[in-house]
């Protein structure tokens, strides 16, 4: 489990991370979502002791990162897959990690196989790697110590769709075995595919957090009637049930779950043509708005 408590990081007068608090729970994949420069990487660097927090604290498996005696065996970290000596081979980079952690030599080959790097690829120098191969090597470095927590910054960057599916299955399996996963992304789609819980950050502040199901449900329900003239009747019925509705082309977006909308339609005697959860439209809207604001102010990472 990872616990972030009121974490703040200031650079001079600029506040990169502003009283951020969240928890990445055991057995779940937590997605850390935000536009570029929102403070994701800074938060993750503070987690693993590379950056000092201005205030607040982070604990990983209940302890400060620097209190871990051999961190690689407890927390697997990938912050930047390109931050490697270009002249080393993939196998050499993994061997350095294996030796630092004091693991058996056989783990190098096992882990390379686990992330899908061939013997031939492992023997190449990293300068000749694609970004996707670097990500796999970085994930290998994070996994080799068989940790209980994974902290991955933009791990799906550079992966093709098959690679993203592979990562989803890998992280799913890791969490199902009782591990904790925190991964960041600036792409809503990636997070939706991989994560159970979502923490959304914008301009250094947490703007939303909860389980994926919760956040998507809060986007409400989409409903359309067979006869457009019946739409008003349904809207009135919903308003009587103190539910907020927003008209959208030929239908309504309702801030309630589909069951309640269905009951209201039944009582009002309205025939429905479509009734479904408004899949993440709210989350997407919020995220787009965040991205637009950040882009307009030109805030840098």
């Amino acid at each position: 489990m990872i616990s972030v408590e009121s974490l703040t990081k200031q650079y001079g007068s600029f506040t990169a991370v502003d009283h951020v608090s969240f928890t990445a729970a055991t057995g779940r994949v937590t997605g850390f979502l935000g536009p570029n420069g929102a403070g994701k990487s800074t938060t993750m660097r503070v987690m693993v002791g590379l950056t000092r927090a201005t205030s607040g604290r982070v604990t990983v498996t209940g302890r400060d990162y620097r209190e871990l005696v051999n961190p690689g065996l407890e927390v697997g970290v990938l912050l930047d897959a390109s931050a490697q000596h270009a002249g080393r081979t993939g196998r050499e980079i993994l061997t350095i990690a294996q030796q630092t952690m004091g693991l058996s030599r056989t783990r190098v080959a096992e882990t390379l196989a686990r992330v899908g790097l061939t013997e031939d690829e492992a023997g190449r120098r990293v300068r000749d790697y694609s970004l996707g191969m670097r990500q796999r090597l970085g994930i290998a470095t994070a996994l080799i110590g068989d940790p209980e927590v994974l902290i991955l910054d933009e791990p799906a960057n550079g992966l093709d769709p098959a690679g993203i599916r592979w990562m989803r299955d890998l992280l799913r399996g890791f969490a199902d075995q009782g591990g904790t996963v925190l991964l960041s992304s600036h792409l809503l789609h990636e997070i939706e595919v991989i994560a159970d819980d979502i923490v959304v950050i914008g301009q250094g502040r947490i703007v939303a957090q909860g389980s994926k199901a919760e956040l998507l449900a809060s986007a409400g329900t989409l409903v359309r009637t067979s006869d457009p003239s019946h739409l008003d009747r349904l809207a009135r019925a919903l308003h009587e049930a103190s539910v907020v509705t927003t008209p959208i082309d030929g239908g309504l977006r309702v801030d309630a779950d589909p069951e309640l909308v269905g009951e209201a339609a039944h009582r009002a005697g309205v025939v429905l043509r479509e009734l479904r959860a408004a899949d993440g439209a709210g989350l997407e809207e919020m995220f787009l708005q965040l991205t637009a604001e950040t882009a307009r102010e030109g805030a840098a990472a």
């Binding site: 002791g49 590379l50 961190p71 690689g72 930047d80």
Partner: peptide, 14 residues
């Protein structure tokens, strides 16, 4: 310069 410190100082934070 090669940014390997990111891994080195994460595996050995002291």
């Amino acid at each position: 310069s090669q940014r390997t410190g990111l891994t080195t100082y994460t595996l050995v934070p002291w």
